[in-house]
């Protein structure tokens, strides 16, 4: 029987982890490019309706958001379950929209103001009454470009 010679000098080849950081950096850049920071803490539950004809919004920076929906569970003890309007980070009423739009306009430069869009993020279960009030108020402040936010639905699957 041949004697198995133990090679004491032999080491396990160490693997180089240098390229791992390359991969991770690649992922990192992907997320950095595609990400958009959450601008607001959403305090109302918004389940957007579905629409097959929904189009993408072109200029995100020129968009103001109005959220309408029932308050999130943590806030329900204080604010109830009726649909509420959220502007920036707090619950507001229809009368506050005027100031909100004015302050949003103020932040844009002169040329971009005409392209300002108001994106209405409204829960599917909301009744139209409050939506109509908001729309009338927007007309009064002449913020006429609006967008009913909706989830894009596949055309074949849509009705």
């Amino acid at each position: 029987m041949a004697k198995i010679k133990k090679d004491t000098k032999r080491k396990v080849a160490g693997y180089s982890s240098a390229s791992m950081s390359d991969i991770v950096f690649m992922l990192l850049f992907f997320f950095m490019v595609t990400t958009s920071m959450r601008q607001h803490e959403v305090m109302v539950t918004v389940r957007l309706p579905e629409a097959s004809e929904a189009t993408k919004l072109e200029r995100k920076d020129l968009t103001s958001y109005i959220y309408i929906g029932t308050p999130v569970r943590a806030q329900q003890a204080q604010y109830g379950t009726d649909a509420r309007i959220q502007l920036n980070d707090s619950y507001k009423t229809v009368d506050d929209i005027r100031d909100f739009i004015a302050s949003q306009r103020e932040q844009m430069n002169e040329y971009d103001r005409q392209f300002m869009t108001v994106s209405l993020k409204i829960d599917s279960d909301v009744r139209m009454g409050i939506v109509t009030d908001v729309k009338q108020e927007l007309r009064r402040t002449s913020a006429l470009k609006i967008m009913y936010s909706a989830r894009k639905l596949d055309k074949s699957g849509g009705m």
Partner: peptide, 9 residues
């Protein structure tokens, strides 16, 4: 992505 139905009041 913000998508939806654009409308002009």
């Amino acid at each position: 992505q913000t998508s939806g139905l654009q409308r002009r009041l």
